[in-house]
Design a protein around this nucleic acid. Structure first.
Lengths: 222, 222
DNA sequence: CGACAGGTGCTTGTATACAAGTACTGACCG
DNA sequence: CGGTCAGTACTTGTATACAAGCACCTGTCG
């Protein structure tokens, strides 16, 4: 799990080489459990394994970002149409606390990301589809990394916090159509950033997803 | 892949024990690759692994069926709203051929299932979201098994074939709203069967998903 | 100087041995 | 007859050794 987080948080940058031997040594276990973890990450698309060549953190693939975006938008908008007449008060309280914390001034980017994830997951729980959300969450690795790059770029969580508030108010008021409109606008805000980032840091993005990385020998002075 | 198909086609019945050793022996390989395959099936929810106890084909979980149903409905309906003005003629031809084959009288159930899957995948390709569909397809194992049980029960693919035709005609005509209505009705037809089947074959369904299967010794006369 | 062949060190894939734990079996004892 | 406890046969989890293949480095030869 912690390896997955390192990939999602870009601590392991897209394109980085992941040797099973090195990972095993640094984690103090054998190759077997490391390998099993990499297989799961590979199925999620976060890692690419090339037989006899190496394993690599996959570069952010704009196509996969768009796929995940479509998926999450479809699911979250459908959930808004499926809200029960009586909303769970415990979840509502949790969401209110969440929104309050989002507006703190000294909020770190990673902390904002956690709150953001929890907020969207809370909305899914309100509609009784928390499990469908876990499927979406597992499929949106590329999207999450793109969103992080976007936030690192302009670092303005305040706008998103306001959008969250707008969505939440519409949900509580039972106004499905405005809630959907606000949600759609909120989710699509990602696209405004991605192309600019790609122009600045092209090495983080995939051009041909089937391209095989090359192994290079680099001299390291220690 | 063939092991996955055996689970989805109910050739390996829900609840069946899967010994890594037996599978390895019957496939002529060692435990390692078998184990890696089981890990992937476990992440899909088709298999449950209990440490030091055993691996089992997961019983059909009505909650997971409902989750997958919600997911696919959300995605397929969203795709219908995202159809381009000019539909790919190659895909249209493929769908027409598919519909024609669906109406053959001597169609086997498994063949109908293949056509059904190809039809829905084709619609997703029309809207340019084939990749999002693969994510959904990987998440709907429990739903697919429930649908197979439903078809084994009343064996009437003709109704579904007509619904497919109705959806297709609306899509070609560009009538999004009727297409959505037809699609929603089509997808929700699953629910009419599942409770009846559960009453007849409760051993295929999960009661408590966290319950641990028990190992039993049975005498086999050979 | 340039091209080519072989050595070397890395990679992942697979097989196998052992560790740890569960459940049934059967003998033993009250 | 019934309960208890050791033994055994199974399970999955982990570590390790070997197999197969790719890329670079280097020595040799033209």
């Amino acid at each position: 799990m912690t390896l997955r987080q390192m990939v999602l948080r870009l601590e392991l940058p897209p394109g980085a080489a992941l040797s099973e031997n090195e990972l095993a040594a640094s984690l103090g276990v054998s190759r077997t459990p490391v390998r099993e973890a990499l297989i799961l990450l590979a199925q999620e698309g976060l890692v690419q394994v090339f037989p006899q060549i190496g394993s690599f953190v996959s570069r952010v693939d704009p196509a996969q970002v768009a796929d995940a975006q479509f998926l999450r938008e479809a699911v979250e908008l459908a959930a808004l149409e499926d809200l029960p007449p009586e909303l769970d008060p415990a979840v509502l309280k949790e969401l209110r606390d969440n929104l309050e914390r989002q507006q703190r001034e000294d909020l770190g980017l990673e902390e904002f990301f956690e709150l953001d994830e929890a907020f969207h997951q809370g909305l899914m729980r309100l509609s009784g589809h928390a499990n469908a959300w876990t499927t979406v969450a597992a499929a949106k690795g590329h999207l999450d990394r793109a969103r992080r790059l976007g936030l690192y770029e302009n670092a303005s969580p305040a706008v998103f916090a306001d959008q969250h508030r707008e969505i939440f108010d519409a949900v509580v008021a039972g106004d499905v159509t405005p809630a959907r409109r606000a949600m759609r606008a909120h989710l699509r805000a990602v696209f405004s950033d991605i192309e600019r980032i790609r122009a600045r840091s092209p090495e983080l993005f995939a051009t041909d997803p089937s391209a095989v990385p090359v192994r290079r020998n680099v001299v390291v002075w220690e």
